[in-house]
């Protein structure tokens, strides 16, 4: 089972309602444990593609296999369960639930997934603190503050800890660094790729900023694989 790719897309077609086709991808693969950089200008459909991979959106045609499961053949609730159990998602910004503490935010996936809860061990809060500490967030005073008081860079690291808890095999990051300055951005990407390697998870990282490509195993331009955009 682990020799199936983390992501395998074939003949994918997707259009938003009342819009021309946005994505038309003949083939795209992400190997297990691979760290891939997906580049594309703003509005090219990167976030849409991530939504499809995460199983929140459904393609009009083609297949998406994630971690050996054919997403397009699964009912919505099964896709939700697959995401809850086996994927970690990091957004561009505003990643945190404002009314939960830092540690509770990190533990959030364990509320929705028994598998993640089990994998994280008996001491969920302890595991959350361990992950936060690895990401440089160990100051108790900082952890006690409302999440909205944290700097954007700190919030993004909390989001990484949350994506990592319970050891998901696929991490999806949607421009998590666009709100960070250059120094913070490089440190953040190093941490993220390190942690992905450490847990053996595959990483799909999208951004419009091509200069980040050097941090990854491989880099793909969405325009190269997306035939819809080419013809538009």
């Amino acid at each position: 089972m682990t020799d199936t790719p983390a992501i395998k897309i074939r003949d994918l077609g997707f259009a938003w309602p009342q819009s021309p086709p946005l994505l038309d991808i003949a083939g795209f693969d992400l190997a297990r444990g691979e760290k891939l950089f997906l580049r594309g200008p703003s509005g090219s459909g990167k976030s849409t593609l991530l939504g499809l991979v995460a199983g929140v959106l459904e393609p009009q045609s083609g297949t998406i296999e994630v971690l050996g499961e054919n997403m397009t053949g699964l009912a919505g609730s099964k896709r939700d369960r697959l995401r809850a159990d086996r994927m970690g998602v990091i957004f561009q910004m505003f990643n945190l639930v404002p009314y939960l503490s830092v540690v509770q935010n990190v533990m959030l996936p364990c509320r929705f997934s028994a598998a993640r809860r089990k994998a994280a061990g008996d001491d969920l809060a302890g595991e959350a603190r361990r992950l936060l500490a690895r990401l440089g967030l160990s100051d108790e005073k900082l952890l006690a503050r409302p999440v909205t008081d944290l700097s954007v860079g700190q919030q993004q690291r909390v989001a990484v800890a949350r994506a990592l808890i319970g050891g998901p095999q696929l991490l999806i990051a949607d421009e998590p660094t666009s709100a960070l300055d250059a120094d913070a951005r490089d440190r953040f990407i190093e941490l993220l790729t390190e942690e992905a390697s450490g847990s053996g998870a595959a990483l799909l990282f999208v951004s419009h900023d091509g200069s980040l490509a050097s941090h990854f195993d491989r880099s793909v331009d969405l325009a190269e694989i997306n035939r819809a955009r080419a013809t538009a």
Binding site: D80, V89, L108, R162
Partner: peptide
């Protein structure tokens, strides 16, 4: 809205 999509991304099902 944002909170809802965070919850969805971290594994919340529509039922949640």
């Amino acid at each position: 809205r944002r909170e809802m999509s965070i919850l969805r991304a971290t594994g919340a099902r529509p039922g949640h």
